[in-house]
Nucleic acid binder design. Structure first.
Lengths: 268, 268
DNA sequence: GCCCCGAGTTGATCGGCATCAAAGGCTCAA
DNA sequence: TTGAGCCTTTGATGCCGATCAACTCGGGGC
């Protein structure tokens, strides 16, 4: 018997704010979590995999699945009710937006990664669905209660936050010191790597093909460039044979090693 | 009787690698930590203030004080023995350096802040003393042992790591979207704020004066600019009356509110 | 088929910061 | 006092990416 069927995609409603009716607060024996999470595509890579069974059960009792269409806001700093989530599929973008209209994408959360800001900080970020999403969501209260009860969860979050910080600092180098050509190559390389190996870091395939979660404007907002510049640099990479010509959002990487090389050498 | 005297600056040796002889592993009753940490300038703001007495005692038993002269490396990614520390005084810079010579400063750690990367990640950072430092140091083994024994420490670290991530993301906006003029104003504002209010965030004074921990080259490496550009933008800020003319590393801010305004508006 | 609309591409020009160059100022030592 | 060496400032010029503008492409509605 396939347990996935009972929790498969067909059960999700298309309304963005509807919760899966099987989730919620019904008290469960230990095996409930096992059943609920069995079909989860990211269960071996997400933070749930790092905590004790008891903590995992508490998580299993509190989450609800949610689908979010591309473009919809997941949270913004001006709303009070916090939300936390693990990305099941799709990509979340974190944007720093200013009153004068300038904006910078400061983070992308891929499947198995965590979304949300515990201990409300000073940051002023907007989290949006870059593509259609499936999320494993927690209300702020529920998640914080679990965190207080199971400090090990803080440890798991700490590891992931440190990884995010490493990523952010790598990105800072790009924003401060790389040329436009390197930036575009870096972004495509990063997306290819993280889309094809969610959660863990393996050697990437030499060729790959994927749908970009980002438009040209969004790529530019990631890279500190304008969309015209992104477009030109993509044309250059195609001319070099690193990318194959394909439709707008479809990327066809012919050589990941070449792409990586271009992402680190300033000359054209 | 002044306890500070017993642990005052006069006891520090000038050799960078010498440890304070009073620190170390002598088993202590609860009050030992209280005595050792009593004179600590950052004890109310650092992460030690957020943990239980028992955990604080374990920390108190494990640390050693260390002075580090400006310019010296604290840790680099190629060395295996890890180190962790709380900054007592001075500023630590975290630099992302590449083989081709390009570099970007991706973090500054001020007094009361934490230095070190638990759970060794993928990042390739160099931590150096930007100014003369006093550190409260832990060996990698000692610190990780305490962390395993007292998970609450992970919670305290999580809070600080999340704050660092917020800071990094704010900095990413600067690197991606601000003009040279805004960048220089942002940096001076940030340094002034953090130097004059170590640890906590209050409204800054309208005027202030401080010694910069950074040379022009280092400021440029923070901002993704060249040192000549930094110099020109500083001249502009002086011409506007936001900064008063003073010697190279002495900054004399005449109006923090004006400085903040210039750090957010793209026009000159 | 038709138009419309938004996203992306390509071209022409502009401007801000980098780059190259030289001079000023401070510290230290002889 | 003088000169060396380093950091910083200031000036002249050039280039990369921004900006403005026109065009192409593809999809959807009628």
């Amino acid at each position: 018997m396939k347990l996935e069927a009972a929790f498969g995609l067909s059960r999700y409603m298309s309304q963005p704010d509807c919760n899966d009716s099987m989730s919620g607060s019904r008290r469960g024996e230990g095996s409930l979590t096992r059943i609920k999470c069995q079909g989860c595509a990211v269960r071996t890579a997400s933070l749930c995999s790092e905590v004790s069974d008891e903590c995992a059960n508490a998580i299993g009792r509190a989450f609800h699945r949610r689908r979010v269409p591309a473009g919809q806001v997941i949270y913004s700093s001006d709303q009070k009710n916090k939300i936390f989530a693990v990305v099941i599929s799709g990509v979340v973008k974190l944007t720093n937006v200013r009153p004068d209209g300038r904006q910078q994408i400061v983070g992308l959360q891929f499947p198995a990664e965590f979304v949300g800001r515990p201990y409300s900080g000073t940051s002023n970020l907007l989290a949006e669905a870059a593509s259609n999403l499936e999320l494993c969501c927690f209300s702020g209260d529920a998640f914080e209660a679990i965190m207080r009860r199971y400090p090990e969860l803080e440890g798991a979050l700490l590891k992931r936050t440190l990884d995010s910080l490493d990523n952010a600092r790598e990105w800072m180098f790009m924003l401060g010191r790389k040329t436009a050509h390197e930036r575009v190559a870096s972004l495509i390389y990063m997306i290819a790597e993280r889309l094809t190996h969610p959660g863990n870091r393996k050697e990437p395939m030499e060729t790959c093909r994927f749908e970009s979660p980002l438009s040209r404007t969004e790529m530019a907002d990631c890279l500190g460039l304008r969309l015209e510049t992104v477009s030109r640099q993509l044309a250059l990479l195609k001319a070099k044979g690193v990318l194959a010509s394909s439709r707008n959002r479809t990327f066809d990487v012919r050589s990941m090693s070449e792409l990586r090389r271009w992402s680190e050498s300033p000359v054209e």
